[in-house]
Computed example of a mutant assay.
Amino acid sequence: MIFRNSRDRYGNFVVALHWLMLVLLAAVYASMELCGFAPKGSELRANMKSLHFLLGLSVLALVAVRLCVRWVAGAAPAIEPPMGRWPALMARLMHAALYALMIAAALLGWLALSTAAKPVTLFGFALPMLTSANEALAHPLKDLHEALATAGYALIGLHAAAALLHHYVVHDNTLVRMLPRRGSR
Rank of each mutant, 00 (worst) to 15 (best):
L137Q: 09
M178P: 05
E43Y: 04
Y29G: 00
W71L: 15
A112E: 01
P82W: 02
Y29F: 13
L122G: 06
R182F: 14
A64F: 15
A61I: 14
S132Q: 12
R177L: 12
P82Q: 05
H171M: 07
P128V: 09
L57S: 02
L60N: 08
R7G: 12
L130E: 03
L62S: 03
M129Y: 13
P180K: 09
F53N: 04
V28R: 01
H139F: 04
T174F: 00
P77R: 03
A97K: 08
V176E: 09
V176F: 02
A106K: 03
G124P: 03
M21Q: 12
A133K: 14
L158N: 04
P82N: 05
A88V: 01
A91T: 09
S42G: 07
M21H: 10
Y153G: 05
L108F: 07
R70Q: 11
A149D: 06
L141E: 01
L130H: 03
M129E: 11
A30F: 14
Y153S: 04
A133Y: 11
G11W: 07
A149W: 00
G41K: 10
A161W: 09
H171S: 10
V120M: 06
K40V: 10
A106Q: 05
T174R: 00
T174K: 00
R9G: 02
N5I: 15
P128T: 09
H52A: 11
P87V: 01
L122F: 15
G41H: 14
A46N: 08
N134S: 14
G84W: 02
P140Q: 10
P39I: 01
H52R: 12
R9V: 03
A160G: 11
M178T: 12
P140E: 09
D172I: 07
V28P: 00
T150H: 10
R85S: 12
L165Y: 10
L111A: 02
N5Y: 04
R4M: 12
A75F: 02
A91C: 06
I79D: 01
A112N: 04
V69Y: 06
A61L: 15
A136C: 01
K49M: 13
L62Q: 05
P77A: 06
N173L: 02
L20M: 13
Y10Q: 00
W86F: 13
K118T: 05
P39A: 13
L122Y: 15
A97G: 12
D143K: 08
A16T: 12
A138M: 11
A160H: 07
L107R: 04
M83Y: 03
V170T: 10
R70C: 06
F123Y: 14
L25N: 01
S58A: 13
A30K: 02
C35E: 14
M90C: 11
T174P: 00
A27T: 08
M21W: 05
L51Y: 08
L60D: 09
S58Q: 02
F13T: 14
A162T: 14
T115P: 00
Y153V: 01
G84D: 05
D172K: 09
A75D: 14
L137W: 10
P39S: 08
H52E: 13
N5D: 07
L60A: 12
A96N: 08
G74K: 05
H139L: 14
A64K: 06
A100E: 08
G11P: 03
A61H: 09
